[in-house]
Design a protein around this nucleic acid. Structure first.
Length: 369
DNA sequence: AAACCGGGGCG
DNA sequence: CGCCCAGGTTT
């Protein structure tokens, strides 16, 4: 593959690069951080957009920019408020790392952003892709930003036969892009490859006839709807099924909630006390025994919510909540009483939010208890 | 090298 | 229902 970069093919890749950048200037989507790239806006955007579609992340980016206009404001905000603004986006460690990096930049670097990709990589939450993206977009440092789009586009373009989700295929993409990156317009070039992947070189049914790289692409398809072409991928880790019972303990005005530990799934978010049922067991038809969850409750009564499913990338959650109306304070391991209004203001996982919606629908919150 | 870590959208 | 998304961190 490296030898393809030498000799005659080198001129071909250069032609493709020129055509690609020209295509980008005409066809790129207008995104707010593209007009005048500022490190804060670009960094924030890159963190939010990790494993996230632009359309989904865009409103979060606006919320963050409007709420915390610069790195000092973000660094001074309570982490809980940052997590609340992040609620619903997923991968919550991104929010915690974003906040930590903001504090480093604001308090230890006096507000001075890193400049090189190498320097950016020392920030929590900033890996090889994000560091290259920021350094190239903001400073035109000639480093290749390789994301999911780039892996797909390049593996097709230079016909990589090894799985790109394994080190062997990944290395070949890195080797090519490192030499292909435009020396003077790295930011435009990187964004052009990604934009091409999003708009033209799509995972299924790529639009080869519209592609600026068609004439130099080894895998270009003559017509639409033809045989799928690389990337070759190995694989998907198996999804495990877990049964969860969310215990909504309330005395009418307040609800018992607890904050999850900072690391692990849904780190730092608030939840109802949750029981994980043993693997393979069915979701029970009857509420769990009162003694197990509310050892000291007096005169409680319970109501089932209807079962629902919540899908994560690596888990299939079969969920059900049970509402415990109690008249005395429960003794639980951790957590605290929150008014429904206070609880509403806490950052919650989507699965807990699903319970919330159903509780509201059954008029169980606030008024109608 | 593989697992973990969310949530949404689309064919 | 499987696949993918402007990936990084931990084991």
């Amino acid at each position: 593959m490296q030898e393809n970069l030498a000799g005659t093919s080198k001129a071909i890749w250069a032609d493709g690069r020129r055509a690609l950048i020209e295509w980008y200037r005409v066809n790129h989507r207008a995104l707010p951080w593209r007009e005048k790239p500022h490190p804060y806006a670009v960094w924030l955007c890159e963190i939010i957009m990790q494993q996230t579609r632009i359309e989904q992340g865009l409103k979060y980016w606006h919320t963050f920019m409007n709420t915390w206009a610069d790195v000092h404001a973000l660094a001074s905000a309570p982490l809980d408020e940052v997590l609340k603004a992040w609620q619903g986006l997923g991968y919550y460690s991104r929010a915690r790392n974003l906040h930590r990096a903001a504090q480093t930049i604001a308090f230890e670097r006096d507000g001075v952003f890193p400049r090189s990709a190498t320097e950016w990589k020392t920030m929590p939450g900033v890996g090889p892709y994000t560091a290259a993206a920021i350094a190239s977009i903001c400073y035109n440092e000639p480093v290749a930003a390789v994301d999911g789009n780039v892996l797909r586009v390049i593996s097709r373009y230079v016909d990589i036969k090894d799985p790109i989700d394994r080190p062997i295929g990944r290395k070949q993409v890195d080797t090519f892009t490192a030499q292909w990156i435009h020396p003077k317009e790295a930011g435009t070039h990187n964004q052009a490859v990604m934009e091409l992947g999003a708009l033209v070189c799509k995972p299924k049914s790529p639009l080869c006839p519209e592609c600026p790289l068609e004439s130099t692409c080894i895998n270009a398809q003559p017509a639409l709807g033809t045989t799928p072409i690389p990337p070759i991928k190995m694989g998907k880790t198996k999804v495990k099924t877990v049964n969860l019972i969310f215990n909504v303990v309330t005395n009418g005005t307040h609800v018992w909630m607890r904050k999850r530990p900072a690391k692990g799934i849904w780190g730092g978010l608030w939840e109802f006390p949750t029981q994980e049922l043993s693997l393979g067991s069915e979701l029970p038809e009857q509420p769990p025994s009162e003694a197990k969850i509310l050892p000291t409750a007096i005169r409680s009564r319970s109501q089932w919510g209807e079962p629902f499913e919540h899908i994560l990338s690596h888990r299939r959650l079969r969920c059900r909540f049970v509402v415990w109306h109690i008249e005395s304070e429960p003794i639980l391991d951790q957590g605290q009483w929150l008014s429904w209004q206070e609880a509403e203001a806490k950052a919650r996982p989507r699965a807990i939010d699903r319970c919330w919606e159903r509780l509201e629908k059954s008029c169980l919150t606030l008024d109608n208890l």
